[in-house]
Design a binder for these strands. Structure first.
Lengths: 110, 110
DNA sequence: TTATTACATTGCAATATTACGATGGATATA
DNA sequence: TATATCCATCGTAATATTGCAATGTAATAA
């Protein structure tokens, strides 16, 4: 019926899926990459950079903020966005652990 | 209007987003983890393991196959699924490169 | 005060995703 | 041949996501 049955899965699986969702859209990947590159920027920079409407950028930034990967600081009229370094490391480790958990990939059946 | 504007982004960004989509659902994370753990299994194993309907598991397996991370081999009546080791490494590296591309996270503005 | 700038939020339309029952094809077994 | 098993696909329903115009808010500039 279109609703993910989160209760069937482990916390770790749900957590990884939720973080993966953040990177599951090229606009958000682009925003994160731009922030990593530029250290910080404002909404209108991203509108220029990506070519999406202001409202759309704002919405993607909101999701990134909700996930904690990005944080915004009010600076006069504008809001300065940047990567939350601590959360970035956490996220990175979540993926690293997932990929490193199994080293012995030896499929006999295939 | 609800359609991702892929043309606005780089190949790398679209590629990463597409792979991330695979992990953006806990059922697919669970399937991949089970396959990594068990080396290989059949559809009905996953139905038992996850508690989702057979048709739903089949659909998730299809997406994993389309992304190349999982491959299926016909074995008598059933289909034996396993992780494609080469693709797994590629995917892992895609994420590692993304996370490693920027080491100097020093936000002065925030 | 008025205008401008920078964003967030809301509301809408289009599309995508998730889930399952039902059906059907293919292979094995009695 | 008849029956059972395994699984892909189709059709359907519910929900989620994407994108934008319009509107609202708050701070600054004229």
């Amino acid at each position: 019926m279109g609703v993910t049955k989160s209760n069937l899965f482990t916390n770790n699986q749900n957590q990884l899926a939720q973080v993966a969702k953040v990177f599951a859209h090229p606009a958000r990947v682009a925003i994160v990459e731009h922030l990593l590159h530029a250290n910080s920027c404002i909404n209108s920079d991203l509108v220029q950079e990506l070519g999406l409407a202001q409202a759309t950028i704002s919405q993607h930034l909101r999701e990134l903020k909700e996930m904690g990967i990005v944080k915004g600081t009010i600076e006069g009229v504008s809001v300065n966005y940047c990567i939350d370094a601590a959360r970035w490391k956490e996220t990175k480790n979540l993926f690293l652990q997932f990929f490193d958990r199994y080293q012995d990939l030896s499929c006999e059946g295939c």
